[in-house]
Design a protein around this nucleic acid. Structure first.
Length: 477
RNA sequence: GGCGACGUAGCCAAGUGGUAAGGCAGAGGUCUGCAAAACCUCCAUCCCCAGUUCGAUUCUGGGCGUCGCCUCCA
């Protein structure tokens, strides 16, 4: 069982081997905090979460860095219009990002560096590039000289000729040597000082270009060579390509050994969800519409393989919610099961098989959808054994193990429920006494009442159970 | 114009050279005071055409369709 990952650099699945045997250094492109993250962004972030969780399952120690881009053209524009500084402007969105990640149960990563707090590192790297002849100053701006880096285009498999033939390469309004040279440093513009977007540098006062932050910050926290660098497919070109050029030209070392790119989330019409295009959905929108964040998590992470496009839809979200419900229902059932002396031996064996197969699916380029399919298939057999009363201690142990394995990635099963409110408990007791006296009308009234408040009751041999469900339509309107 | 991906049941989706996981939705049952949950049963021949092969959904070529990147973007 070895972990294999699809490396964009080679276009193939490769056995994963970090530089240091038991330690993985991973850098992932985080949010630009100029607005709320939309669910497409969140898909990428949850993909990172899947990667880091599975690396840990695989026995690695992980040092994971996710940057926050807190300076870029959009932020500058917005801060300018709002009449505030970029630092102030960005605050609520950075906070919202962390809230969203917490809501979606993404693990905290080791470092969340912000671009504006690492200007010194960027200035250093730009200086090096200038000294090495990989960069030049033109009219106060500093550009990377692509002609000095022959490997340029290797990641995105775009050749220079293709770039030039591109219909929409920016017109040469700057004094660049080549149209595709990109900015490392932009000289201060009139309004920049007022919004706090200007810094001193040996090559003139200004602000960093977009790409340099990732090169500088990854080096600062992880060193010159990363084991894994991940991001959305749209970052492949030019962002990641530029990172490679800057880092390798400055460090004279390979930048990232494995590149992972997650596919887009499409909106309901099938088009890429994009902030600039207007229509996009945030986590807050979905929650406000009554969707369970855990269902959103499962949908984004496991509805489809990370390298295939998915379309956001009510049906798919509902299907994910049902899957969460079934998994939790099952875990609960296993925990409460009345055990028999004899185990169901066949089931014990098959649970072990499924655990192994699940692990293999994840090891095969993180195929969580396939792994989950195996698990659901097995749930049926396990539930049948539970129904039949053939369920012993080994069965329980094995199945709890499987649940743990799955939840190591999904983290939707054992997410703690809010405590049982006293009032709910009282109403359940009340309903029980009504049922005993065969006053079913009253019993049903109580159950309906709770249902409207988002609590479903279920009667079973082991007694009454309750669980949280989406509030009914009557409740929401 | 260049590069690339995808097209599997009503919907989402995994997958393999030997006649296609799983989930949602739907139908019929078992169980239940009624429900719910759970279980049982049913529900596809994999866009089209040609080729390779004993055999292709899976390989090759062509076609049609959808989408992405080449520009800020997860």
């Amino acid at each position: 069982m070895t972990l294999r990952l699809h490396n964009t650099l080679t276009g193939k699945k490769e056995e994963f081997k970090p530089v240091e045997a038991d330690h993985v250094r991973m850098y992932t492109c985080g949010p630009t905090v100029w607005n709320y993250a939309h669910v497409g962004n969140l898909r990428a972030f949850l993909f990172y979460d899947l990667v880091r969780r599975h690396l840990r399952v695989s026995g690695y120690r992980v040092t994971h860095v996710m940057n926050l881009t807190d300076i870029d053209d959009r932020i500058l524009d917005q801060a300018m219009h709002a009449g505030t500084t970029i630092t102030e402007y960005v605050k609520p969105y950075a906070q919202a990002f962390f809230e969203d990640m917490a809501t979606l149960r993404a693990e905290h990563v080791e470092h969340y560096p912000r671009a504006t707090e690492h200007i010194a590192e960027m200035v250093d790297m730009i200086s090096t590039l200038l000294q090495n002849g990989n960069a030049y100053i033109a009219d106060g701006d500093v550009y990377f000289r692509i002609a000095s880096f022959p490997k340029y285009g290797e990641l995105s498999h775009l050749d220079r000729a293709g770039l030039k033939a591109g219909a929409r390469v920016a017109t040469d309004k700057y004094d660049k040597e080549s149209v595709s040279d990109f900015a490392l440093w932009k000289k201060s513009q009139p309004g920049d000082e007022k919004i706090g977007a200007s810094w001193d540098a040996p090559f003139g006062r200004g602000r960093p270009g977009w790409h340099i932050e990732c090169s500088a910050m990854s080096k600062r926290y992880l060193g010159a060579t990363l084991d894994i660098h991940a991001g959305g497919v749209d970052l492949m070109f030019p962002h990641h390509e530029n990172e490679i050029a800057q880092s390798e030209a400055a460090n004279h070392a390979p930048f990232a050994r494995v590149w992972l790119h997650s596919e887009h989330l499409a909106d309901a019409t099938g088009e890429k969800m994009s902030k600039s295009a207007g229509g996009f959905t945030t986590l807050r929108d979905l929650v406000a519409a009554g969707h369970d964040p855990l269902a959103v998590r499962l949908f984004l992470m496991a509805n489809a393989h990370y390298r295939s496009r998915v379309r956001l839809s009510q049906e798919a979200l509902h299907a994910s919610a049902e899957q969460v419900r079934r998994l939790r229902e099952f875990a609960d059932r296993v925990n409460r099961a009345t055990l028999t002396d004899a185990d169901h031996a066949g089931l014990v064996d098959r649970t072990a098989d499924v655990r192994a197969a699940y692990r293999e699916a994840l090891d095969d380029d993180l195929n969580l959808p396939q792994g989950l399919g195996l698990v659901f298939d097995h749930l049926r057999e396990a539930n049948a054994a539970l129904d039949a009363g053939r369920f012993g201690p080994l069965n329980k142990t094995a199945l709890l193990g499987l649940i743990d394995d799955v939840d190591a990635h999904l983290d939707v099963i054992r997410a703690e429920e809010p405590g049982l409110a006293d009032e709910v408990e009282r109403l359940i007791a009340e309903r029980e006494s009504a049922r005993k006296s065969r006053d079913f009308a009253r019993a049903d009234r109580i159950r309906d009442e709770l249902r409207e408040r988002g609590i479903a009751l279920e009667d079973s041999r082991e007694g009454v159970r309750w669980r949280r469900v989406a509030p009914t339509a009557a409740e929401r309107s």
